[in-house]
C-alpha cells in the first residue's frame, strides 16, 4: 500500500480552530486546522454512531461529536471517554503551495 496525496482545499478554506468535511470516493474525512495553525485529518465519522464530526465543535485539540458529546484528540485520534470507546483513524496532512493535502493509502 502506498500513500497518495489528495488535494483537499485551500488553506484559507478552514478557519482556525475549526474543521471541515472532505469526501473522497466512498470515504469521508474530517480535516482540522488548530489554533496554532497546524493541520490534521481523521476519519470523518464518529466511532460511536457514525455521525459527521465536521458538524461538531473544535475546542483546543479536541473534536466533539455534535450528537452525543463523544470527544477525540484529533491529533492522535484518541477517544477521550464515553460514549466513545474506539479511537479515530488519523491520516497524514501537509500544506503545499497554499493547499491542504491529505495522504490516503491506495
Amino acid at each position: 500500500m502506498n500513500d497518495q496525496w489528495i488535494d483537499v482545499c485551500a488553506v484559507g478554506e478552514i478557519n482556525e480552530e475549526d474543521v471541515i468535511r472532505f469526501d473522497h470516493g466512498p470515504y469521508t474525512y474530517a480535516i482540522y486546522r488548530s489554533a496554532d495553525n497546524e493541520f490534521f485529518a481523521t476519519a470523518g465519522l464518529c466511532t460511536h454512531e457514525s455521525i459527521h464530526l465536521a458538524d461538531g465543535l473544535v475546542m483546543d485539540h479536541v473534536i466533539e461529536c455534535p450528537k452525543h458529546n463523544g470527544r477525540f484528540d484529533y491529533r492522535t485520534g484518541k477517544a477521550l471517554g464515553a460514549p466513545v470507546c474506539v479511537n479515530l483513524k488519523t491520516y497524514p496532512v501537509r500544506v503545499d503551495a497554499g493547499r491542504v493535502l491529505l495522504a490516503i493509502s491506495v
Binding site: R21, T28, G44, L45, S50, I51, H52
Partner: peptide
Amino acid sequence: DAHPQAEAT
C-alpha cells in the same frame, strides 16, 4: 445529504 457511510446502519 448524509454521506453514504452515515446512512442508517
